[in-house]
């Protein structure tokens, strides 16, 4: 049911194009865009670019999740680490991460390394903050309960703190995924020879608006299904948790 407004919007778009209300030079019709998308999928050209983009985003996000969860947990359980890291994180916080792309290109070149590094940095903060908050708000009773049943301090992190923080970590990772895609596209607009951002930018540069929009829609759809898939996966894996709606 929630898809109806979107369909209506698309119908209006196509109708406006068909009846000539919307000149082709301004916006290609929806059918043209769809045809382009079909052609790209059939030729298989789009998949290489998709793979390149998702490898970058995946690597960056993966590094951020691994490092962020570890750091957040340690910060929550060890005051000294928290004290040392807090000002550093506070300092990185207000930096608009895509603005670091030029610097990273100087340091790591214009290849994949600089993109992955910026994505990782941009995704790190939401994961650290979510993990830290989750691990900090673990119910004392659960910790006591585990201790009373013979769990050692070291195992506590694994057996109690991590699982109890998992719902918040999962929410942080979801934010990180959205951020990763934004930074990915920005970095591919600025410099790339492959990837969906590169494709959009180069079609846009030659005025091939129908092909460009086709890729934009492809990217949006992938982003959407990635998010849905992630949520569905969480619901399966974390059956024990009562998710909101």
């Amino acid at each position: 049911m929630r898809i109806v407004p979107l369909l209506l919007l698309i119908c209006a778009w196509q109708a406006a194009a068909s009846f000539g209300v919307l000149p082709k030079t301004l916006l290609p019709s929806f059918f043209d865009v769809a045809a382009q998308l079909g052609a790209h999928v059939r030729s298989g050209e789009i998949f290489g670019h998709t793979a390149a983009s998702f490898a970058r985003a995946g690597a960056g996000c993966g590094i951020a999740v691994a490092a962020g969860v570890a750091l957040g947990l340690i910060m929550a359980r060890m005051r000294a680490v928290e004290r040392a890291m807090e000002p550093i994180l506070l300092m990185i916080y207000p930096v608009p991460k895509p603005a670091m792309i030029p610097l990273f290109m100087i340091w790591l070149g214009i290849g994949d390394f600089s993109k992955v590094a910026v994505i990782a940095l941009a995704c790190l903060l939401p994961v650290v903050v979510a993990t830290f908050n989750g691990a900090r708000s673990v119910d004392d009773m659960l910790i006591w309960s585990a201790r009373a049943r013979g769990t050692s301090e070291a195992r506590l992190l694994w057996r109690v703190v991590l699982p109890s923080a998992l719902p918040q970590i999962a929410a942080g990772v979801r934010t990180a995924i959205a951020i990763a895609i934004i930074v990915l596209v920005s970095s591919e607009f600025i410099s790339a020879e492959k990837g969906l951002g590169y494709l959009i930018f180069s079609y846009g540069g030659v005025g091939a608006d129908d092909a460009m929009l086709a890729i934009v829609i492809w990217l949006a759809a992938l982003g959407y299904f990635l998010d849905r898939g992630y949520l569905a996966g969480l619901r399966r894996v974390m059956r024990w948790h009562a998710f909101a709606h």
Binding site: F201, G204, G205, M212, L219, G223
Partner: peptide, 9 residues
């Protein structure tokens, strides 16, 4: 969704 992708448009 990344609205940034609309820059060329």
């Amino acid at each position: 969704l990344p609205k940034i992708a609309l820059i060329p448009l």
